[in-house]
Amino acid sequence: MTETGHEGVVPAPGPEAAGPPVADAGPRPLGVVLDATGNTEVDAVLVRLQDADLLPTEDHVEVYEDVHRGLRDTLTRLDDDNRS
C-alpha cells in the first residue's frame, strides 16, 4: 500500500518536484513542412500558414481564416473554369 492508503494509487508530485518554472520564450515554430500540391494558386495560399509559426496562438485564427478564404476562392474559380 502507498502512503495514501489505497493500493496502486501514487500521489502526484507537488510543484516542488517539477523544478523551477520555465520562462515563456514566446511562440515556437511547429516545423510543419508544406508539400507542393501541384496547383500554383493553392500553393501560394498555403504559404500563408507559415505565418502562424511567428504569431502567438490567439492570432492563429486570422491566419487560418485567410487561408480558408483563399482556398475557397481558388476552388470557386476552378469550379467556374470547369463549367465554361
Rank of each mutant, 00 (worst) to 15 (best):
P11E: 12
V47D: 12
S84F: 05
G14C: 01
P20E: 14
D73L: 08
E41C: 07
A44Y: 05
G8N: 15
G8Q: 05
E3G: 08
L78E: 13
G31V: 05
P20T: 11
G5T: 08
R48E: 12
H6L: 14
D73S: 12
G70V: 08
T4G: 00
V9P: 00
P56E: 06
G8R: 11
G26I: 13
T4I: 14
H6K: 03
E16T: 01
A18W: 12
T2K: 05
L30K: 08
D66H: 10
A44T: 12
D80Q: 14
P13C: 07
V45E: 02
M1R: 06
E58F: 03
L49Q: 02
R48H: 11
P21G: 03
V9S: 02
T40V: 07
E62C: 00
T74S: 07
E62V: 08
D59I: 00
T37G: 04
A52D: 01
V61K: 11
D24A: 12
A17H: 09
L78S: 08
D66P: 02
D79W: 05
V22H: 05
V63N: 04
H60P: 05
E58R: 11
P21K: 06
A18C: 01
D51H: 07
Y64N: 03
T40H: 11
D66E: 15
P56V: 09
P56W: 09
L71F: 04
L46W: 06
P15D: 14
V32M: 04
E7C: 00
Q50C: 01
T40E: 15
D80P: 01
V67L: 04
D53C: 07
A52Y: 02
E16L: 06
G19D: 04
V42S: 05
D80L: 13
R28K: 09
L75F: 15
H60A: 04
A12R: 11
L75V: 14
V61T: 10
D53H: 08
P13G: 14
G5R: 01
V32Y: 09
E41D: 12
P27M: 08
T37K: 06
G19R: 04
G19H: 04
